[in-house]
């Protein structure tokens, strides 16, 4: 079924937010152990009881990290080697300031170092337009909002 979540992809992807928001004690190129239990939990995918992530007690220090690292040079940090059901996984992250610019697996179950394609954000200006569409994505919650929405017009169109 579509709802199945690829287990390994999630475990690697999950490291990124964990490291971005790693707790205070993580400093100067060192990742604290906090990432480890999170990673192990994620190898199960967040769908079952057993997958309920173990609490790391991570306090958000993003602001602080940003201030500290805003002007920093590119640096790479190695995460902990994590034993998963698929084998040992260790990920290396390259940071430019507080931004992750690259992630690669230095140890992966299939032994070949693999590179994870990170979506690099593009920035552009906001535009408005009309176009032929089938449906509208937007935060439409109230019935009043719905009545006035493009989606209502589409629903009534046939």
């Amino acid at each position: 079924m579509k709802r199945a979540i690829p287990v390994l992809a999630l475990s690697v992807a999950g490291l990124v937010p964990v490291w971005l928001y790693s707790p205070g004690p993580a400093h100067e190129g060192e990742i604290s152990e906090v990432a480890a239990p999170e990673t192990q939990a994620q190898t199960q995918a967040p769908k079952t009881t057993s997958a309920a992530p173990k609490t790391s007690g991570a306090a958000p220090t993003t602001q602080q990290q940003q201030q500290q690292t805003q002007q920093a040079q590119a640096r790479t940090v190695n995460g902990p080697a994590v034993n998963t059901s698929e084998g040992t996984v260790q990920v290396q992250v390259t940071l430019q300031g507080n931004k992750i610019t690259d992630v690669k697996a230095v140890r992966a179950p299939n032994s070949e170092p693999t590179r994870m394609a990170l979506p690099i954000l593009k920035q552009e200006a906001l535009k408005a337009q009309s176009a032929d569409i089938d449906t509208v994505s937007g935060a439409t919650a109230t019935s009043q909002g719905y009545k006035q929405s493009l989606q209502a017009a589409l629903d009534g169109a046939q």
Binding site: L126, Q129, T140
Partner: peptide
């Protein structure tokens, strides 16, 4: 494909992108 318009955040009857 299904053309999914994303509502413009400022202008209710406009889109900012179509996926």
């Amino acid at each position: 494909p299904w053309r999914v318009g994303v509502r413009h955040p400022d202008i209710a009857d406009q889109l900012c992108v179509v996926l």
